[in-house]
């Protein structure tokens, strides 16, 4: 009984970690699907989102879960600017260029944030801090339940947006066949900007949820989660949003399992070991059918 409850707890922490990864990975996937671009600096948007929430919270004291929306909105704007200034000019000039460009963005965002907000570790207190609810044999803080619900809501919203709105359907069309979309009169450049902004907004949501769960953050926080999110979409198959969700959950569970069984230092390494093993067996990822 004791052991079972430990395993259940660790599964629960894995599930929570998975939520952050899912949001990051879904954002990356959305951008990749439409633009066929991979932004290694995606984690920096998570960091900026966290800092925007932090700043607004500091000045207004609003509920951080409300600020989440504001933070997402701000990141749509920042994402659109980055897309227009940095990624648009190099579209189609080679995939390596995108990777190199991301490195430049990482330098700029991390250190720009350090210049604006300082490099000290910060934290935000959730208004529901200290409230616990029983879930089966566990007693878990209310915040985690909210985080999981918010993640699910965002994902449902995204699904509805893609399936029911015109822009969403145009995004899907562009993602399936860029030239075809152009031929039927879709302004693909506008779709690019929108999907890049949306992807960044999802990263901002991940950042905000990270912050309210009581985890500390600093300007360098985003680098590793972003790379892991990328590992997740490789596992789940590039461009596949259900794949990203399953991959994100698996990654959260694998990491926490490894930290428990092998020691905390293996937490990062295990993600990449899983990735390499999968790629050796299936060079296109677990669920990836066609190559990017």
């Amino acid at each position: 009984m004791e052991d079972l409850s430990i395993i259940l707890q660790i599964l629960f922490w894995g599930l929570y970690a998975g939520c952050i990864y899912i949001l990051l990975a879904t954002g990356l996937n959305l951008i990749f699907g439409v633009m066929k671009v991979v932004n290694f600096a995606h984690g920096e948007f998570l960091m900026v989102g966290a800092y925007i929430t932090f700043t607004v919270f500091l000045f207004t004291g609003f509920n951080p879960y409300v600020i989440l929306l504001l933070s997402m909105l701000a990141l749509v704007g920042i994402g659109a600017i980055v897309e227009r200034l940095c990624f648009r000019p190099i579209l189609g000039t080679g995939k390596l260029n995108e990777i190199f460009l991301s490195i430049g963005l990482i330098y700029i965002f991390q250190n720009g944030a350090a210049m604006i907000w300082g490099d000290a570790w910060q934290s935000v207190k959730s208004p529901y801090d200290g409230i616990s609810v029983p879930v089966g044999p566990l007693s878990v803080p209310l915040d985690y339940i909210i985080i999981m619900v918010v993640t699910a809501l965002i994902l449902c919203g995204l699904y509805l947006f893609l399936k029911k709105t015109t822009i969403g359907m145009q995004m899907q069309a562009t993602s399936q066949n860029r030239k075809g979309a152009m031929l039927v009169g879709i302004n693909v450049e506008r779709i690019d900007i929108i999907s890049f902004g949306l992807g960044c907004a999802l990263a901002a949501a991940a950042g905000t949820l990270w912050v309210v769960s009581g985890q500390v953050f600093n300007p360098y926080m985003g680098a590793i989660p972003a790379v892991k999110a990328f590992a997740i979409i490789i596992l789940g198959g590039l461009g596949s949003i259900p794949g990203a969700i399953i991959g994100g959950l698996l990654m959260g569970l694998a990491e926490n399992g490894a930290a428990f069984l092998l020691g905390g230092i293996w937490k990062d390494a295990v993600s990449f070991i899983v990735l390499i093993v999968v790629l050796v067996i299936r060079p296109t990822g677990l669920f990836g059918g066609k190559e990017g």
Partner: peptide
């Protein structure tokens, strides 16, 4: 129990 430098999630440990 150990964790890597800069870790922010200690729940499993």
């Amino acid at each position: 129990q150990s964790f890597k430098m800069g870790e922010s999630d200690f729940r499993t440990q």
